[in-house]
Structure formats: structure tokens, C-alpha cells
């Protein structure tokens, strides 16, 4: 599903975010990418979303080389990726329903299809009663659930989560991780970038360790799956 081959990302000013990083990820796999702040976890997510281009090396996503991707193809790539961020990235001026619906509106689905699929997603995440609420009226956990519902409402084959539990308390963090694992069990490929070792240790999944843009290890995180 994902192949990073000697990927380097340097920013102007000489800052190296990734240094010849290589790893791969199978379809349907669940992968943690971990490391301290500045290790390059978020850069991996940004590169996979084509928000940035690598300075060197190759990235294959579903056999497509992202370096040779035309700009006009980027929206269509992103339609197959669900994204979840630490800061939720919700639109404050739209209701919960509208925030989730936006993914389907981009695909050009009819109003009836949108109502049906958003309804299912909201139901799955216990958000039906909050459908008409606006994000600022919700708790952090509720907002993250909306973000997850938005990420999966169009059934993408890949979900990328960048510190999805970073701004949540431990109980809510476990709830969010359980949701992500639930998606994984349904066959979705899930990549989670996190620095929360305690949380990772609750789940038995493959984990890549990064430090200053380099891969420094790989292990299976401990605990129950």
C-alpha cells in the first residue's frame, strides 16, 4: 500500500525533516509511527497527502509514485485517504452533519445519498443527537469523533491519523484509538503518527521508531490487541 524508499525532506534553511527514510506498509495493515517531537512523524503524513513533495527518494502509494503525480491528480488521490489531525480541522461555521457531509459533497453525491451515508456515520460514532450542533459547542472527544466520521464516511482504503489523541484526555484517547482499530478490523489501512508510548503499549501493532528524521528501530507495541 505504502512504500517509502530513501525519502529525504529538507526545508529551506537546511532543516532536515526526513533523512533517507525507508519503510513499507501492507494493504489492511495498522502501523504506528512514533518518536519525539521533530522526529518527522507529521512530515510522513504531509508527504502522503501530497501537501509537500520529497526532496529526494520515492514514495509509492497504491503503486502510484507521488513525485510524478500531476497537481490536477492530487484531489483525486486525497479522496481515497481519510485524514485525522490533533486539532480536528473541523469547519466551525458548519454543523456536525455538514462537516461530515463535506467529504461526500466533494464526490458529487446526491443529497439523498449524502443524508443516508452521513446518518450512518453519525450513528456509528454516537453523534446523531449532535448533528445540528456546531464544533465549538462540542467537547474535544466529540470533535475528534466528528473528524473520524468525516474521514471514513466515504469508505477510504487508507486512513492517516496525525497525533489523533494529542489533545484528548486518556479516556477519550483510548476511545479514539478503539475507533481506529475498529476501522482497521473492517479492512482499512491505518497509519497513526503518535508520540504517546503509553497509549501504543495498550495495542499490539507494528511500530516504526523515528528520531531526527531517521528510522531508528521497529518493534511490535505491547499489550492487548
Amino acid at each position: 500500500m505504502i512504500v517509502f524508499s530513501n525519502v529525504t525532506k529538507r526545508y529551506p534553511g537546511g532543516i532536515t525533516a526526513l533523512d533517507s527514510l525507508s519503510f513499507d506498509m501492507e494493504e489492511g495493515e495498522f502501523l504506528f509511527v512514533t518518536g519525539p517531537s521533530g522526529a518527522g512523524k507529521s512530515t510522513i503524513i504531509r508527504l502522503l497527502l501530497a501537501l509537500e513533495m520529497p526532496t529526494d527518494g520515492q514514495i509509492l502509494l497504491a503503486r502510484r509514485n507521488l513525485r510524478s503525480l500531476r497537481e490536477s491528480s492530487i484531489p483525486f488521490l486525497r479522496r481515497n485517504i481519510g485524514t485525522i489531525f490533533q486539532d480536528f480541522r473541523l469547519i466551525d461555521s458548519r454543523t456536525v452533519f455538514e462537516n461530515v457531509a463535506v467529504t461526500l459533497e466533494v464526490l458529487g453525491l446526491t443529497a439523498r445519498e449524502i443524508r443516508s451515508r452521513v446518518g450512518q456515520a453519525l450513528d456509528m460514532f454516537g453523534l446523531v443527537r449532535l448533528a445540528r450542533h456546531y464544533p465549538p459547542m462540542l467537547s474535544g472527544g466529540e470533535q475528534q469523533r466528528v473528524a473520524i466520521a468525516r474521514a471514513i464516511v466515504n469508505d477510504p482504503p487508507l486512513v492517516l491519523a496525525d497525533e489523533p489523541t494529542g489533545s484528548l484526555d486518556p479516556v477519550l484517547a483510548v476511545e479514539v484509538m478503539d475507533r481506529l482499530l475498529e476501522m482497521h478490523r473492517r479492512g482499512v489501512t491505518v497509519l497513526v503518527a503518535t508520540h504517546d508510548k503509553a497509549l501504543m503499549d495498550r495495542y499490539r501493532q507494528r511500530c516504526i521508531l523515528l528520531d531526527r528524521g531517521c528510522r531508528v528501530g521497529e518493534r511490535i507495541s505491547g499489550g492487548d490487541a
Binding site: 484531489p75 481515497n80 485524514t83 466551525d92 463535506v102 466533494v106
Partner: peptide, 16 residues
Amino acid sequence: RREIEVLLLVGATPSF
């Protein structure tokens, strides 16, 4: 800005 950013993330084209 946030709204446009989110739309770009979910795969909206510039014309959309």
C-alpha cells in the same frame, strides 16, 4: 482559510 484547507484535504478541486 480553515474551511478551504479542509476542503483541499478531503479532495476538493480548485474549481469546486
